[in-house]
């Protein structure tokens, strides 16, 4: 169990896109269980046309993936910190493969993410896992790659260097099929 202040000390994300509320369980370098409560007051429900169709209030799947990715990053960064190391730079979603969605979540639901580290190669973390809602499978993540890239100058402006993303060893990249 971990408080929200601790999560904020590890993840660079902030309101309103800090999408992990609590750590329920963590085994460093192995897996993490986190929760995120979906509420009707989140920005994704702002500006919606009036409707009687409840399906239109399904929590966006893009945000569900973001919440899972943050959970995996939390496991990764927290594990590294435990070894006395820190990764500095920008946390980036680099790739994913075989992500499937099975049921929707609505305001009032709680997303429970279970994220596993498959392997860590340099500044790249390879994750897999699931999102559960009411004990039912909501999403399955076959493979997700998160990377940390240094923020440095690119033609006069600060940016993560794209060429570094392309430098991920080929056996670990997930090319289009």
């Amino acid at each position: 169990m971990s408080d929200h202040a601790h999560i904020r000390s590890v993840l660079p994300h902030r309101h309103p896109i800090l999408l992990v509320d609590q750590i329920e369980e963590i085994e460093h370098f192995d897996h993490i269980v986190t929760v995120k409560a979906v509420t009707g007051s989140e920005p994704c429900y702002a500006g919606m046309a009036e409707t009687t169709d409840p399906r239109r209030f399904a929590y966006p799947r893009s945000l569900m993936v973001e919440s899972f990715g943050q959970s995996g990053a939390l496991l990764w960064l927290e594990s590294i910190r435990r070894e006395g190391r820190e990764l500095t730079g920008s946390l980036i979603f680099a790739a994913a493969k075989n992500v499937t969605f099975h049921r929707a979540a609505y305001p009032g639901d709680t997303l429970r993410h279970v994220a596993h580290i498959e392997q860590i190669v340099g500044d790249n973390a390879f994750l897999r896992g699931q999102t559960l809602v009411d004990g039912e499978l909501a999403a399955d993540y076959g493979s997700v790659i998160a990377v940390v890239r240094q923020t440095e100058s690119l033609d006069g402006r600060q940016a993560p260097v794209a060429s570094q993303l392309a430098a991920i060893p080929r056996q670990h990249t997930m090319e289009e099929q």
């Binding site: 994300h13 902030r14 309103p16 893009s62 980036i92 979603f93």
Partner: peptide
């Protein structure tokens, strides 16, 4: 744009999941 103020406070990046949202 919504959500971007927190991604990240010191250096804004359009999240990868938002690129998926744009395609959707």
């Amino acid at each position: 744009d919504p959500y971007l103020e927190g991604h990240y406070p010191d250096f804004t990046i359009y999240p990868g999941v938002f690129v998926i949202e744009s395609v959707t």
